[in-house]
Amino acid sequence: MSTPTIPDTCPRCDTHEVSLLTESPVPGRWSMYLCGVCFYSWRSTEPGYATDPATYPAAFKIDPVDIPKMPVVPSIPARRA
């Protein structure tokens, strides 16, 4: 088995910190990838809507600069004295 080619770009946030999440238990059937920036994950066998940065819909794209501004749920409390 050859090592699967890891995609260069995250379909959702268009950054390039993609890693191999896992390979199929039955070797060679598929691989899954994970974006280290927005934690989007996908399987190599999924339809294009989930895997192709070019056609991923604008309404669901994430700009990495917005991530730190997302609401924190739940908020982190102060430590007890």
């Binding site: 959702r12 994970l34 927005c38 934690f39 989007y40 994950s41 996908w42 399987r43 999924e46 809507y49 989930a50 819909p57 669901f60």
Partner: peptide, 11 residues
């Protein structure tokens, strides 16, 4: 594990 709806972030 699998993605349920089209634009879910993952599994």
């Amino acid at each position: 594990l699998f993605r349920l709806n089209r634009y879910d972030a993952g599994s």
